[in-house]
Amino acid sequence: MVAWDVIGALVTLAGSVFLLLGAIGVARMPDLYNRMQAGTKATTLGNLLTLTGLGILMPSWLPKILLIAVFVLVTNPISSHALARAAHAAGIPLAKGSVKDALDHDREAR
């Protein structure tokens, strides 16, 4: 079953490409919120793909590996949201080029 090995490895490779792209985003983006966009979330697809690829390499473990992937998929947005929310409440500003901030506007109106 050499073919399955190669497919699994290729899926893993595709995943690690997304992991790298997400990390490039974290390094390049101008402010915290954009870094979260590129970083924490562009990497979730990378995470999903690498885990699936490794699951294909080891089919008998696939259910458990997919469970880890689902866990990441469920918890990641919750912690990202909490962090972004806290950061905005703590007054971490948006980058200079940002178009608008409806939340800041509404807070001041209150």
Binding site: F18, L21, G22, I24, G25, R28, M29, P30, D31, Y33, N34, Q37, A38, K41, A42, H88, L94, A95, G97, S98, V99, K100, D101, A102, L103, D104
Partner: peptide
């Protein structure tokens, strides 16, 4: 998003 990240001009128009 990946396409934006690798683009040297970083084409984003962020806002809330």
């Amino acid at each position: 998003v990946a396409r934006r990240v690798v683009n040297p001009a970083l084409p984003i128009r962020p806002g809330i």
